[in-house]
Design a protein around this nucleic acid. Structure first.
Length: 956
RNA sequence: AGGACUAUAGCUCAGUUGGUUAGAGCGCUACCUUGACAUGGUAGAGGUCGGCAGUUCGAAUCUGCCUAGUCCUACCA
């Protein structure tokens, strides 16, 4: 083995071996375990958040697989409608200055499929490097042919059940992407805007209660006044209630619009009068419905002013009676230009009362990045309220649990107030809606035209054309847990693995995906009793991975790191190029370059997959965002090196040697276990139990902490050192040597299995090299049983003895450290006041103590003997004395003792205070009081002994 | 406006039903090329647990208020 850990060399081949041998596929077994990957965008690449979630999923998968479950981690990708279409449109523009319209629908979609083939390998390659043990043989895609059927089936059935419908509704319209988007895809941003107060003249000579010939309305979007169809006042508002039923003459347009009474008008706010534009505002739309006001759409799909407005009745039918007149000068104007013009014209007409600064939130499209317009269009909707009912119930009754639980609140709040889901998108890339129209616009929903004719009894002569729209990406990914397993066929995989066990995902897509998956699954998947099946039993919600200062990682901030670059390393120039290349906002490049240079002056060095995974696991405390810290990664890379070198040590001392019974070396000598052997084996049982518990509770941070602490401090720090005296001592028996060799190997082998779910590569590599020494058979650690703690290996006496030994050794080392005695200098040590147990322990551990503390002699003094001047440590009641002559500086020792004394005195004072408190003694449980008494006695006795020592030395 | 979360060592974070001398990694100080490992070893320093009240014999932990920050939802004529 190499003297230092070289991750690249061991990682390159193992994954291929595992995959070729089919270890990732379900291995059979009585109980099944299944995780569905949240499908990443097929043309994207994995970022740190993915690496994080994948580490958790893979750790769970490997853990459950080793425990003997029939385990499936289902892999696949999402077609990601808008995101992917935008990428390809950008590329098309860059390559040939063409738009998708230049190509036409079919050719453009063909282009996207090409791009998918070209770039789809990025993610799979990344996943392989991350060691993800997914079932590649059954990889799925949300637009593969199986999904195509599942999506059609779902849509048609929902339509037939009345849970999907089409209607002319006000939706969030993205004027850049030319599509409707759902409420969730709108990002509200805080901005400083303006509120304009406009004077609307009353028609027919009517006057307000205050005698004025106009009323005042406020608006933040003056251009929408072109579509006003009413003004609302509160029916209880004495200032205006008499005006209800009277009319306004709409400025600039000249339309007569009614004054209506509606609760929506808040008497306290603004003037108390509200202009009503049902085609361009969600609230106004509601008012319009209540007061039977027509809808006038004044915007094009670009959000420019139309040449002539579209006019509709309240129910969405076309209204032929109202004029769609728009003053000529505004026609074709961009919306914000029209706003400026209209304000200027109103001002010129003396109708602008005032302008106020107004802090407000403005809706932006999360993809297109432009201001969203509420737009009146024909769209498809899903009846989310009905679908949500069982989904709410499933979380309420515990069939589905969120980890951490707090996310259930978030889920419930949203689900209880859910709005119908706009599922149609005016895009080309996606599942085209299986709806067909005849020439009268009548709709038929079926798989294809033929099926539609049959289903609805239409003649061949009836011309049908398919709906141009596609479904929201989330509509298909909502079917992920059962669609990937073969639904609508009732496949073996579906029966075996559904419901799945745990979903690992970020809180940011609980609404987008998790909630919808629960709704869809429970509607379509039923068990034998017809009871709705949940898609998964547990939702493990991860936090976001942020950069070291807590900022979200994003391309425009220039703080993203490709997980592969942490694994393989990357030079500064390459990293700079990666971060600043192909940017949406090239002007940021210089700043990002500087930042990168400062952050990584030497680039990033290679750390290996295992170190990255271990770091992510160690940072995975539940429900918390993670601020990424390169130092942590380095630390855990060092941990890998530690394991590597411990394995080297073990191999050097066991390979070709007799490791006792059950070894496959051909020898099988008798074995005697040293105290240290029994101790480490005993401690190992605790670790096994803890790791299992932590995995079962999704506490990967605790699991990694437990492993780190035990491997580094106990196994490497103490046990390997304690093995040396046995292995290297001529006098030690052959039995003892075999016992220690066997323990060295077996504990290491067990630790490798414990750590394997988190660090697959290094554990496999080392396991392969030591398996023969343990008598293990098997081709891979992946399919070895996960360790289980056994009670009969626990040895409390050995644990206590080693604790004592550690105390002795640390005590002497402390004296060395504080007194400045060279570690090379062998010391003579005197012991005094030891109990029988101390004496027995000393006898049993004389060699360990001498070697590890570097002692030349250990001598017992009788209780009354006068000790030479010494530096002193107390181990329980026993004094450990290191004679000072020629070694120790008197002042230093006095200072050291004084420091100890101060500590003890403080402790004595604290505990005495507690125990003299009548209330404490009478109220606290007996155990707690006894513990305090013990503490007090120990502290007092130690203090007195040290005081005595201090006085002696001081008197010199 | 409603809700959730966060605040612990210089930094990044643990601390599971209230009872520890409040922990880890990194960083810091001193010493050490001891035959697994300097990606190492040994010994240290460093915290009035955001603030104020309260409950309790006892609070980092429970309650209330306040401050700072993050996020979600809704609304803003």
């Amino acid at each position: 083995m190499e003297t230092t850990y070289q991750p690249h060399e061991i990682e390159s081949s193992w994954y291929q071996t595992w995959e070729e041998k089919g270890y990732f596929a379900p291995q059979g077994g009585d109980s099944s375990y299944c995780i569905m990957i949240p499908p990443p965008n097929v043309t994207g690449s994995l970022h740190m958040g993915h690496a994080f979630q994948h580490t958790i999923m893979d750790a769970l998968t490997r853990y459950k697989r080793m425990q003997g479950n029939n385990t499936l981690w289902q892999v696949g990708t999402d077609h990601a409608g808008i995101a992917t279409q935008m990428v390809v449109e950008r590329r098309l523009a860059a390559e040939s200055q063409q738009t998708r319209h230049d190509l036409g629908r079919d050719a453009f979609i063909e282009k996207i499929w090409e791009w998918k083939e070209e770039s789809g390998g990025t993610i799979t390659n990344q996943m392989r490097r991350l060691g993800n043990s997914v079932d590649w043989a059954n990889e799925r895609f949300t637009m593969d042919s199986g999904f195509y059927h599942a999506v059609q089936e779902v849509f048609i059935r929902l339509y037939d059940e009345g849970l999907v419908y089409r209607g002319k509704r006000l939706v969030n319209w993205d004027p850049k992407l030319h599509t409707a988007i759902s409420d969730l895809e709108v990002e509200n941003k805080e901005v400083q805007g303006k509120m304009w107060y406009l004077r609307y003249p009353l028609a027919d000579g009517v006057k307000t209660a205050a005698g004025e010939d106009h009323i005042v309305v406020g608006t933040t979007r003056p251009e929408t006044m072109l579509g006003d169809t009413g003004v609302a006042v509160n029916p209880d508002d004495d200032r205006y209630k008499d005006l209800i039923g009277k009319f306004i003459e709409l400025p600039l347009v000249g339309r007569r619009i009614p004054i209506v009474g509606d609760e929506h008008a808040d008497m306290e706010k603004g003037s108390g009068c509200v202009k009503i534009t049902p085609a361009h505002d969600f609230n106004d739309n509601e008012v319009g419905k209540r007061c039977n006001l027509p809808m006038i759409n004044v915007l094009t799909f670009n959000a420019d002013i139309r040449d002539e407005a579209q006019t509709f009745n309240t129910d969405g039918s076309v209204n032929e009676d109202i004029s769609g007149f728009i003053p000529e000068k505004y026609r074709g104007m961009e919306r914000f230009a029209a706003r400026r013009e209209i304000v200027a014209d109103l001002k010129a007409a003396g109708l602008l009362v005032k302008i106020e600064e107004n802090a407000m939130t403005i809706p932006y499209g999360d993809r297109g990045g432009v201001v969203i317009e509420p737009m009146l269009t024909d769209q498809w909707f899903a009846d989310a309220k009905t679908l949500a009912k069982p989904a709410i119930e499933a979380v309420k009754n515990g069939d589905i649990q969120f980890v951490p639980q707090q996310y259930e609140n978030m889920y419930n709040a949203w689900m209880n107030n859910i709005q119908d889901w706009c599922i149609s998108r005016q895009l080309w890339w996606g599942h085209r809606i299986p709806a067909f129209y005849d020439n009268e616009g009548k709709v038929y929903v079926a798989n294809d035209k033929e099926a539609a004719r049959q289903k609805y009894g239409l003649d061949q002569e009836v011309e049908l054309r398919q709906d141009d729209d596609v479904l929201d990406t989330w509509f298909s990914s909502a079917l992920w847990t059962f669609g990937t397993l073969g639904w609508p066929e009732n496949t073996q995989r579906l029966q075996t693995f559904h419901p799945t066990d745990v979903l690992v995902t970020g809180f940011d897509i609980i609404f987008f995906w998790v909630a919808r998956m629960i709704m869809m699954t429970m509607h379509f998947m039923k068990d034998e009793d017809g009871k709705p099946q949940v898609p998964f039993k547990t939702v493990y919600v991860t936090g976001l991975i942020r950069d070291e200062s807590g900022d979200k990682m994003s391309k425009s901030k220039g703080n993203v790191i490709d997980p592969l670059d942490m694994i393989d390393g990357i030079s500064l120039p390459d990293l700079m190029a990666k971060r600043t290349g192909n940017m949406m906002q090239p002007q940021l490049a210089a700043k990002i370059g500087k930042r990168t240079e400062k952050e990584f002056p030497e680039g990033i060095s290679a750390h290996g997959t295992d170190a990255l995974r271990f770091t992510l696991a160690a940072l995975a405390s539940t429900g918390r965002d993670i601020n990424w810290d390169m130092k942590r990664l380095e630390g855990y890379r060092n941990f890998c090196n530690k394991i590597w070198n411990a394995a080297r040590y073990v191999l050097m001392n066991t390979e070709g040697e007799d490791c006792g019974q059950l070894s496959t070396n051909g020898q099988s000598g008798a074995v005697e276990l040293s105290l240290a052997d029994r101790w480490i084996a005993s401690k190992l049982q605790e670790v096994e139990a803890e790791v299992v518990k932590h995995f079962d509770e999704y506490r990967f941070d605790m699991a990694s902490q437990t492993l780190y602490d035990f491997i580094w401090n106990e196994y490497c720090g103490w046990y390997l050192e304690l093995s040396k005296p046995v292995l290297w001592d001529e006098a030690a028996s052959a039995e003892a040597k075999r016992g220690t060799r066997r323990t060295l190997v077996r504990v290491l082998e067990t630790l490798l299995r414990l750590a394997h779910p988190i660090m697959p590569y290094i554990t496999e590599e080392i396991w392969q090299q030591i398996k023969g020494l343990t008598g293990k058979e098997g081709d891979t650690i992946m399919l070895q049983p996960f360790p289980e703690a056994s009670k009969d290996k626990q040895d409390p006496a050995a644990e206590a003895d080693i604790e004592w030994l550690k105390g002795m050794i640390t005590g002497v080392r402390n004296i060395r450290g504080e007194m400045g005695i060279s570690p090379a200098k062998e010391l003579e040590v005197l012991l005094q006041n030891g109990s029988d147990k101390d004496q027995a322990r000393l006898t049993a551990n004389h060699t360990f103590l001498s070697k590890l503390a570097a002692l030349s002699s250990i001598t017992w003094l009788n209780p009354g003997d006068e000790a030479p001047m010494s530096a002193t440590q107390l181990i329980g009641g026993m004094k450990v004395l290191v004679p000072m002559a020629g070694l120790i500086n008197k002042d230093a020792e006095l200072a050291r003792l004084q420091k100890e004394l101060d500590k003890l005195q403080k402790e004595v004072g604290r505990v005495e205070g507690k125990l003299s408190n009548e209330k404490f003694v009478s109220n606290a449980p007996e155990v707690v009081i006894a513990k305090e008494r013990e503490k007090l006695d120990a502290a007092k006795s130690s203090r007195d002994k040290l005081q005595e020592q201090h006085d002696k030395i001081a008197a010199l």
